[in-house]
């Protein structure tokens, strides 16, 4: 009995911290989804935030300063792109995609300028933060905050209206464009947090460290029907599937590469079978 229990806590120990950055990212994507913005920029924003975090942590020695700078710069970047999109009436899907390109170029350029490498930037004598235990509770708290924001604050209600009925919001004196920009900024905030979490945990920045988590987060938003708690459940399911495939690889029964696709296949089956909410 004791063995089963410890195995279970072992699973949670590795599962929950791994799910946390993904949960944060999907919360960001969720908020922007509510404002009618398809957050295809998440992956690039996570990478960007992660890089800034490591760079500043390395320079100041304080992870807190790193996270703060990551948040500030990522929000600034996405704020600028969002304002540009609103002002020029550009296609938001394209400008969001451009964030990914800009992020990969900018991180790589500054990495070679600051650290003389475009590869891994590891912080010497930095062995990750001993905060893994807190990752998941913190992410859940963020989910609660997002839920509260969307349901219980006037800005949250306006943001939802900006996505589903911008003309109604405009008639009430709200500026839908402003709320869309707000949603980009909130998404940037969470992307920066997710990026920082990923990189601080590694004690290093690796090019493309987000490795598609931004896209998975977007998928989780749909799987969770745009509800923060259901999204958290979807993220846990994703992370669980991923964890299972990590274990599965060790059994050596199946080609390792094929196993990598299983979480997505599983998500596809679940999504296809679960009844859809009517629009």
């Amino acid at each position: 009995m004791n063995g089963v229990f410890s195995a279970f806590t072992g699973v949670l120990d590795s599962l929950l911290p791994a799910a946390s950055p993904l949960l944060l990212a999907s919360l960001g994507a969720l908020v922007s989804e509510h404002a009618g913005v398809l957050a295809v920029f998440m992956d690039g924003a996570i990478n960007f935030g992660g890089f800034v975090c490591i760079a500043v942590t390395g320079a100041t020695g304080s992870p807190l300063a790193g996270v703060a700078a990551a948040i500030a710069l990522t929000v600034l970047l996405l704020f600028a792109v969002s304002r540009f999109t609103e002002r020029t009436g550009a296609n938001p899907f394209l400008t969001a995609l451009s964030v990914n390109l800009l992020s990969s170029g900018a991180t790589s350029l500054s990495s070679s300028a600051l650290f003389g490498t475009r590869g891994t930037v590891a912080l010497a004598d930095f062995s990750g933060l001993d905060l893994r235990l807190w990752y998941f509770p913190a992410s859940l708290a963020a989910a609660a905050a997002v839920s509260f924001f969307l349901q219980r604050t006037l800005a949250g209600i306006s943001l939802r209206a900006a996505g589903s009925a911008p003309e109604a919001l405009a008639a009430r004196g709200g500026d839908p464009g402003k709320y869309r920009t707000l949603s980009w900024c909130i998404a940037a905030f969470f992307a920066a947090c997710a990026g920082s979490m990923l990189t601080l945990d590694l004690g290093a920045w690796v090019p493309n460290v987000s490795a598609g988590r931004g896209w998975t987060a977007l998928a989780a938003v749909y799987l969770g029907y745009k509800n923060p708690w259901l999204c958290a459940a979807a993220v846990l399911a994703f992370a669980g599937a991923e964890y299972a495939t990590n274990i599965l690889q060790g059994l050596g029964r199946m080609p390792a590469t094929i196993i990598l696709g299983l979480p997505y296949a599983l998500a596809l089956v679940v999504f296809a079978l679960v009844p859809q909410r009517k629009q």
């Binding site: 590795s14 990923l198 460290v209 490795a211 988590r213 990590n246 690889q249 060790g250 050596g252």
Partner: peptide, 23 residues
């Protein structure tokens, strides 16, 4: 114990795999 990340950059997945292998 041979495991595959699936790409050459997903460090977090590398860490997860390593943890699982260690377990």
């Amino acid at each position: 114990d041979f495991r595959v990340v699936g790409n050459w950059y997903d460090a977090a997945k590398g860490a997860e795999l390593a943890r699982a292998m260690n377990e």
